[in-house]
Design a protein around this nucleic acid. Sequence first.
DNA 1: GAATTAGGTTAGTCAGCACTAACTGAAATG
DNA 2: CATTTCAGTTAGTGCTGACTAACCTAATTC
Lengths: 194, 194
Amino acid sequence: MPTLRSRAKASRRDALLAAAAELFARSGFNGVSIEDLGAAVGVSGPAVYRHFTGKQAVLTALLVGASDDLMTGGQAVVDAAADAPGALAALVRFHVRFALDNPDVIRVQDRDLGSLPDTDRHRVRALQRAYVELWVSVLGQVHPSTPVTLLRMRAHATFGLINSTPHSAAAASAPAETVRALLEEMALAALTPR
Amino acid sequence: MPTLRSRAKASRRDALLAAAAELFARSGFNGVSIEDLGAAVGVSGPAVYRHFTGKQAVLTALLVGASDDLMTGGQAVVDAAADAPGALAALVRFHVRFALDNPDVIRVQDRDLGSLPDTDRHRVRALQRAYVELWVSVLGQVHPSTPVTLLRMRAHATFGLINSTPHSAAAASAPAETVRALLEEMALAALTPR
DNA sequence: GAATTAGGTTAGTCAGCACTAACTGAAATG
DNA sequence: CATTTCAGTTAGTGCTGACTAACCTAATTC
């Protein structure tokens, strides 16, 4: 039964995670203090320890959550696709949408992964690897004659392309729909061996 | 006249910058101590202050140097090109080579730029903007009917693609020449409006 | 409604780290 | 060769920041 207190706690935890994404993205994991994080949600400092065992635990929750969402969501769109080319297009759409919707998390993911404790870092990396292999397997069906190694490099570079949006604040200079379409087109072009 | 001491000093400074690139790339600016940096070149801690006024000054030298090299080198290859399509191909070749030769600097550049003091950060950003506009101007000649805003977004995303190599250690899994050719091909494909 | 739980508070504690002080010895200078 | 310069040393200093202690109060439990 969801008691008043437990719901308050859950929403505070969510607020902390959201604030952490924003703060870590702006200043880096090491540039944000527990005090800053608490202040961002209106509590002060040590209250954070009522929700997370420590600063690293906040980062862990954020990054495990993100790579989990990517993996789960990617698997879902592939399962829903009719054929391999359709799956690839769906993956591109899905990833572009994710990057545009969660620029902060994307930024933290490839900037502060190294600040995770070993165990958690390996967990996140395992999820990321699985996600890459999902792409590689679809790519392999669409381009059967291309060596898997090359397809894996293509996938990595394409993530770099799509994930760069958070870096270029230029995204704000055009309507979101235009940006989305452009990134999808570029990603597909980059993925296709000529 | 280059005295014995002055040459020793210059080479120590170079060694410090090289070590800084590597350490900052691995652990982030805030994750590296002055002590670490000194130790990496065989001196201990405060000796660094004989070469740089402070920790931030090391980062400044590193990043201003890098964006300067990019801008200067980019301008040179454009000037040397026979026509616009040639200039674009040369820019791609130049940038891919730079990223593969200086993965640490690339990583530090887009991870720790925010740790620079305001003045220096603006200086680096100005150089980066000029470099982007160099690309945009060449792209504008090759694709005159495409709005400049879209070309700028393409340039940014292409940098993300090329600069992602340092992130994916996968680079080690194939011969350097293969990686280089693949990145060049992907970059050109991504840059070309279909 | 008394007892307990738990999210919050403020006031430490302790470690790490950027930077300074004081000094040393060898190269540079005249 | 006497003097100065300067890259290095070790020993602080002061601040920041993660985390702990002790306590307080209101929601939960029985």
